Amino acid sequence: MRIGEIARLAGVSTRAVRHYHHIGLLPEPPRLGNGYREYALRDAILLVRVRRLTELGLSLDEVRDVLADDAGRELVEVLEELDDDLARQEAGVRARRERLAELLEQAREGRLPAEGPVSPELAALFADMARVSAGRAGPEPRMAALDRELLALMDSSFAGEEGRRMVAAMQGAVASPEAMERAYDLYARLDELDGAGADDPRVGPVASLLVELLPDEVAERVAEAGPGTWSAGGGFEGAFLTEFSPAQAEVVRRALRLAAERAGRAPDADPAGDADRAPDADRAPGAGRGGRTEEGR
Results as ranks from 00 to 15, higher is better:
Arg142Asp: 05
Arg49Ile: 02
Arg142Thr: 13
Ala16Leu: 03
Arg283Phe: 05
Tyr187Glu: 03
Met143Trp: 15
Val222Cys: 08
Glu178Asn: 04
Ala7Cys: 01
Pro205Ile: 15
Ser119Pro: 00
Glu237Gly: 11
Glu224Val: 02
Ala260Lys: 14
Leu41Thr: 10
Ser157Gln: 04
Val251His: 10
Ala198Val: 11
Glu294Tyr: 14
Arg136Pro: 02
Ala278Ile: 08
Arg15Lys: 12
Leu214Phe: 05
Glu217Leu: 15
Ala159Leu: 14
Arg262Phe: 03
Val50Leu: 06
Ala281Cys: 02
Glu250Asn: 13
Ala173Tyr: 14
Ser133Cys: 01
Val203Gly: 01
Glu162Ser: 06
Arg182His: 12
Val76Thr: 14
Ala266Tyr: 02
Glu109Asp: 12
Pro29Cys: 11
Glu192Arg: 15
Phe126Leu: 08
Gly195Met: 01
Asp85Lys: 10
Met154Asp: 02
Leu146Asn: 10
Gly288Leu: 13
Ala183Gly: 12
Tyr187Pro: 05
Pro117Leu: 05
Gly228Lys: 05
Gly11Val: 08
Ala101His: 05
Ala152Trp: 02
Asp199Arg: 06
Arg2Pro: 00
Asp280Lys: 13
Pro141Gly: 09
Ala278Tyr: 04
Gly226Glu: 06
Asp185Thr: 15
Leu58Phe: 13
Arg52Trp: 01
Glu80Thr: 06
Arg64Glu: 10
Leu46Trp: 04
Gly204Asn: 07
Ala255His: 04
Ser13Arg: 02
Leu190Phe: 10
Leu209Gln: 15
Arg257Tyr: 10
Leu67Pro: 00
Pro139His: 14
Asp69Thr: 14
Arg8Asp: 07
Arg165Asp: 04
Met180Val: 08
Arg94Asn: 02
His22Tyr: 12
Ala196Pro: 10
Asp185Cys: 05
Leu210His: 12
Arg99Ala: 07
Arg18Tyr: 03
Arg257Asp: 12
Asp155Pro: 07
Val222Lys: 12
Ser133Asn: 12
Asp84Pro: 03
Leu193Ala: 06
Leu100Ser: 06
Gln106Ser: 04
Gly234Asp: 01
Leu209Pro: 00
Ala259Ile: 07
Gln89Leu: 08
Gly110Thr: 11
Tyr39Lys: 04
Ile6Gln: 08
Glu109Met: 04
Glu224Thr: 11
Glu295His: 14
Glu74Asn: 09
Ala266Glu: 10
Leu104Met: 12
Val17His: 08
Gly273Gln: 08
Ala137Glu: 12
Ala169Glu: 13
Gly72Glu: 09
Ala159Thr: 03
Leu41Ile: 14
Ala134Gln: 13
Pro113Gly: 04
Glu74Phe: 02
Leu193Thr: 11
Asp83Trp: 06
Glu250His: 13
Leu56Val: 09
Gly135Val: 03
Ala275Thr: 14
Met143Gly: 04
Ala16Gly: 01
Glu294Asn: 01
Gly116Arg: 01
Arg265Gln: 09
Asp274Met: 08
Leu56Cys: 07
Asp191Ala: 03
Ser133Trp: 02
Met1Asn: 01
Leu193Met: 03
